[in-house]
């Protein structure tokens, strides 16, 4: 037990973190690596504010132990630079306070990659994983659909 040295692949780089096996990926990202884009919310897998991509799929980083991420490709919002979904969020004013935004962007990004022709039901199914306390859902839905329609 105690601290363990783990090598994680994050945003295209190898990063060494010293964590407990009991630490979540969210804790390692924020506390060990200063990657504060993934937000702590419920810490219970409900709100989606901490969503990152693991091997291209959305993952609530509060529901994953850091040690489980060894050998996986982790992308946080800091690793997403100027992608269409980010511009779409700005153009559609898809945020108010912004706290949920990184999680939504990471979820939407993965949705677009896996289902570039997603229909309304698919978009709704995926977006149900994240909560926006400001209730900006209509604009968030517009943002993701604007990217899907363009592609």
């Amino acid at each position: 037990m105690g601290l363990q040295s783990l090598t994680l692949h994050i945003n295209g780089e190898k990063r060494v973190v010293n964590v407990r096996f009991a630490d979540t990926l969210l804790y390692a990202l924020r506390g060990n690596l200063g990657l504060t884009g993934a937000k702590p919310g419920c810490l219970n897998g409900d709100c989606g504010a901490c969503t990152v991509n693991v091997d291209g799929w959305p993952m609530k980083s509060c529901l994953m132990l850091a040690v489980e991420a060894v050998g996986k490709e982790v992308t946080t919002v800091e690793g997403v630079k100027g992608e269409p979904i980010q511009h779409a969020f700005v153009e559609n004013f898809a945020f108010q306070c912004g706290y949920c935004t990184p999680g939504f962007i990471m979820n939407c990004r993965s949705l677009i990659q896996h289902h570039p022709d997603a229909d309304d039901a698919k978009v709704k199914e995926w977006l149900e994983s994240n909560i926006c306390r400001c209730t900006g859902y209509a604009e968030i839905q517009q943002a993701v659909k604007s990217v899907i329609n363009k592609e």
Partner: peptide, 9 residues
């Protein structure tokens, strides 16, 4: 069950 992202775990 749960939500789409959680079902990935």
């Amino acid at each position: 069950i749960a939500d789409h992202t959680a079902r990935g775990k």
